[in-house]
Design a binder for these strands. Structure first.
Lengths: 152, 152
DNA sequence: GTCGCAAACTTGAATGACTCAAGAGAAGAG
DNA sequence: CTCTTCTCTTGAGTCATTCAAGTTTGCGAC
């Protein structure tokens, strides 16, 4: 618990950011709720710090995403989600049925598809891969109960 | 171009959709404005058909995306964009500076990265790849050099 | 320790892409 | 031509996210 807090403090300081209660709470919440959306993070933060404003959470999330402390993912048709696993070039599996997101490592290697056929003069620094499909639960559900939500 | 209109009509009919003025206008606008957002498509549609409602455009775009007549792309932090190039598994190059989007074919082949290391039981039907980077103009602008060519 | 100030936070309102709803209008099968 | 059903219009509503203004606080400097 406490040494985790020390780690988060260190993370903030090395990023040149001030250490504050709301920020520690946001970092902690993102760590314990991978792929959560802003709403869920606000709720999680308020469990330990009820007086934190939604604005502070958004500010923190944006700042952290900007500085690379966490990663924002936003599948089409969905709201933004956040995760603390950064810098390891992993990708995401998204269920078209229920929106479930899972992490996956790419089969090709550490930097998959980083070389498109024609880079049009761009300097490329990241390849983001989203695999679209159906999760096991939704596949089962399709033969019985009606689907969930987030249909496309 | 009348034969282009015939093609669009055919496209709608084979998708089991009724042929209407607004729909033809939307298909045409997406074709001539690749990677445009809904707003721009509404504006383009209204050049030829001023009385079309924004709702009709959204309905059309959603229906077309659902039926595979066009593709919706939505880089994180940006609003949805649409393109008429479908079914050829191409990907996108997105500039972090100005949001410019360009099509790219994947170097790996027709179905890049369709096999993640662990599919968690998912049935995967699409791999979406976004290359993030800086376009030539934004790179020049950053070093004070004169711009390159016209934005898309 | 405490001063000063930029960074961060709170409160509250605003924005804007997108959706919902209800009724009118038109496509197209029979 | 007629009828059914799909599509369109109008107008209001939603909701994630941002903007703005004023207050508080972290923390380097004295």
């Amino acid at each position: 618990m406490d040494h985790a807090r020390i780690d988060l403090e260190h993370l903030l300081r090395t990023a040149g950011l001030r250490v504050t209660g709301p920020r520690l709470a946001v970092l902690d919440a993102v760590g314990t709720h991978p792929h959560a959306e802003a709403d869920q993070i606000i709720a999680a933060v308020r469990e330990s710090a009820p007086r934190v404003s939604h604005q502070a959470v958004y500010d923190s999330l944006n700042t952290f995403a900007e500085r690379g402390l966490l990663r924002r993912i936003q599948p089409r048709g969905a709201v933004a989600r956040y995760e603390s696993r950064v810098g390891d070039n992993h990708h995401h599996l998204v269920c078209r049925g229920c929106g479930l997101i899972r992490d996956v490592d790419c089969a090709v290697g550490l930097a998959p598809c980083l070389t498109p056929a024609n880079r049009h003069g761009f300097t490329i620094d990241e390849a983001e891969v989203i695999y679209w499909g159906t999760c096991p639960d939704c596949a089962d559900r399709r033969t019985g109960a009606p689907p969930h939500e987030l249909r496309e």
